[in-house]
Simulated assay, not measured.
Amino acid sequence: MTQHVEKERVPFLLVSGGTGGHLWPAIAFGGWMERHCRGHQPVFLSGQRKLEQEIFQACGVPYLSLNIVGSPLDFSATNLLQRWYALGGAVRTSVKLLKERHFGAVLLFGGYVSFPMLLAALLCRVPVAIHEQNAYAGKVTRLAAFFRVPVLSGWSACRPLSRDFFTCVGVPVRRFRHLQNSEAWNTLVRGVVFREGPTILIFGGSLGSRKLEQLVRNIAQLPPFREWTFLFVTKGDNLPKVVGNCVFVPQRWDPSPFYSLATAAIVRGGASTLAEMKDQRIPCVVVPWVHASDAHQLWNARAFVDAGGGVLWQENESMAAFGAALLHVVKTMHGRTGTSNDTTSSESERICEHLYEKVIALTMKGDVPNGRTRTHAQEPS
């Protein structure tokens, strides 16, 4: 295990890995704890993928890492035997960490790195809970529910679990700054004149989406949309480029300028992306990735639409339906309020506080089979 943090006793271990969809809620919740919870400073644990390193480093957040790079529960992987061998070492390392550092609770945010820590927490009888960002629970969450580990869900649905097996708390999101259009545009695209009219953000998640990009480039050339600006968040470090009404800007870890400019957005169905759009009140056309495991992006999209966040369009539908969905979210759903320079929303703060209170209630007071008794729990300041 690689040491990235100073040796200090902190009561919460936050575990996340894989993609930004698992990492950002953990980082957001940890930041809230640092601001509001005296004595309950978090320690982060992740894997060793490049994306994980980049995100933590971009946030200036120290973390511990396990020597594991993929889920042993992904039976389609070509290196499955190697992953199971790495899992054994990761479990042993996790057990050692829990025995050396007396954490009051372990909170899992999903991703492959949560699996060994779940097993370690159960073996060591350390209080543990898991936050599930998706509307369809991942494999580790379903395993945790089997062992009666408290499941805290980001949405009102957490299929295939019944309501008795999870508690809805919402998805913690990052802090954002709302910028004026000119400031946001100049931050992203220097030397290009900002066009008045709708600005549509196209975001394929932390891993990008070439197929989604091509879909939108085709629709952008149709007559109803030629005066709009389509702002693509792309992978790589190339300079921004303009092709007609399509502007391509490199991905950045602080999306505040993107969100400030967006009239509406076209996004994949990642849970954290949708939670951020909901938090920023940006209406969306959601195009779920058809190869997402357990169709979780489709379930996320349905939960998002049910919450009034936008329109679902699937890749087997017509381009005409896609154009109609985009016109609908811009003309009938756009109209954000509260566009001040505040860096965080009251809803995001409420979600973090609710999550914290549930972790305290479910794990630190001995209310679950795997939890040790705790006589005192620090309340939010």
Rank of each mutant, 00 (worst) to 15 (best):
Q3W: 10
V5I: 13
K7T: 12
K7E: 14
K7R: 14
P11E: 11
F12Y: 14
V15F: 06
G17H: 07
W24F: 15
H36T: 12
Q41V: 12
P42V: 07
V43S: 10
Q48C: 15
C59K: 15
G60C: 08
V61E: 13
P62V: 03
L66R: 03
N67P: 09
I68Q: 08
V69F: 13
G70E: 10
S71C: 08
T78G: 10
Q82S: 15
R83S: 05
W84R: 09
L87N: 06
G88T: 11
R92I: 11
L97I: 11
H102Y: 02
F103C: 09
L108F: 07
Y112Q: 06
F115S: 03
C124I: 09
V126H: 07
V128W: 04
I130R: 06
E132H: 05
Y136D: 07
Y136Q: 11
A137N: 04
V140C: 06
A145G: 09
R148A: 12
V149H: 05
P150Y: 05
S156T: 15
A157Y: 09
R159V: 11
P160S: 07
R163L: 12
D164I: 02
F165K: 15
C168A: 14
G170D: 05
V171A: 02
R177W: 00
H178I: 10
Q180K: 13
N181T: 11
A184D: 01
W185M: 02
T187Q: 11
V189M: 01
G191E: 06
F194N: 07
P198K: 03
I200E: 00
G205S: 01
L207Y: 10
L222P: 01
R226S: 08
R226Q: 15
F232E: 00
F232R: 00
D237K: 13
L239T: 12
K241I: 11
V243N: 14
F248L: 07
P250W: 04
S260L: 00
L261A: 03
A264G: 12
K278L: 12
D279W: 06
Q280V: 02
P283I: 05
C284K: 03
V286G: 04
W289K: 07
W289G: 12
S293V: 13
H296D: 03
H296L: 00
W299K: 11
W299D: 14
N300H: 04
A301P: 01
F304P: 00
V305Y: 02
V305Q: 08
G308A: 04
E315H: 07
E317Y: 07
A320L: 13
A324T: 10
L326S: 01
K331R: 14
M333C: 05
R336M: 00
R336D: 01
T339G: 10
N341I: 09
S348L: 00
S348P: 02
S348T: 10
Y356G: 07
A361D: 14
M364K: 08
G366P: 05
D367I: 08
E379R: 14
